[in-house]
């Protein structure tokens, strides 16, 4: 039996008992976690969409955020390659996870003495983070489609003028403008034109807590602004 006290290298002189001292610490931590969960639950009212309609095949679903990386991964393996993302990669990952303690058998536990394991762990975290980020970015611009007039140079010029009058008080572009709202210098690379139009029509679609107000623009003026912004890349 490899109990804590008999472990080599254990130098603790007066180890704390689990009950009540350690349980108290865990309890305090649990209360903190609980409060954070309730706070988030309170602020972010869980959305409930329309009732399921099996006939509405145009609906594009999104998985929960922690499955987004996998959702994004699937996009890179289409058609006959899908089997790679559905079977091969998950099976390899699972096998690697289960076998980890049997592959990494050295006695070393320090992270600097195990560069391969450390690198693999770091790479996995970075991959998941990057795929999640990509999924979110692509999502925002591809969710929205609209019938829009083609972009002309006149539109872009007029859009820049309108942007200066209404938007630049809060939004900055190329270093000029307010700090109240996100910088839009490269908005064209992050969002498509339809998405920009949607935000102008209803700012709340991006973020329910946004302070952006509905800007009173005519359809033509809005097209001009979206034409201008969609070219800011």
């Amino acid at each position: 039996m490899s109990g804590i006290s008999s472990l080599p290298g254990s130098t603790d002189k007066n180890p704390t008992p689990f009950y009540p001292d350690h349980l108290f610490v865990e309890g305090v931590a649990a209360i903190a976690v609980f409060l954070v969960i309730v706070l988030i639950a309170f602020v972010w009212q869980v959305p409930l969409e329309e009732m399921a309609d099996p006939g509405d095949t145009a609906y594009v679903p999104r998985p929960e955020w922690y499955f987004l990386f996998y959702f994004q991964l699937l996009k890179y393996f289409e058609g006959s390659l899908a089997v790679v993302a559905i079977v091969v990669l998950p099976a390899l990952t699972l096998a690697l996870l289960v076998l980890l303690p049997f592959l990494d058998r050295s006695a070393a536990t320090g992270i600097r003495k195990r560069p391969l394991t450390a690198a693999l762990a770091l790479a996995s975290v970075l991959c998941i983070a990057a795929l999640t980020a990509l999924s979110v970015l692509e999502d925002e611009s591809h969710l929205y489609t609209m019938d829009l007039p083609p972009v002309t140079d006149e539109q872009i010029a007029a859009g820049e003028e309108i942007f200066g009058r209404f938007c630049q008080i809060c939004h900055s572009v190329d270093g000029k403008g307010g700090f109240m709202a996100p910088d839009l210098t490269q908005i064209g690379a992050r969002a498509n034109r339809a998405y920009i139009e949607q935000v102008i029509i209803d700012p709340q679609i991006v973020n329910q807590a946004t302070i952006m107000s509905v800007i009173p623009l005519s359809d033509a003026e809005r097209h001009e602004v979206s034409a201008y912004l969609s070219r800011k890349k």
Partner: peptide
Amino acid sequence: ANHPVPDHANL
């Protein structure tokens, strides 16, 4: 309940 908790895991 009575097992000791090692220092390195003790907040």
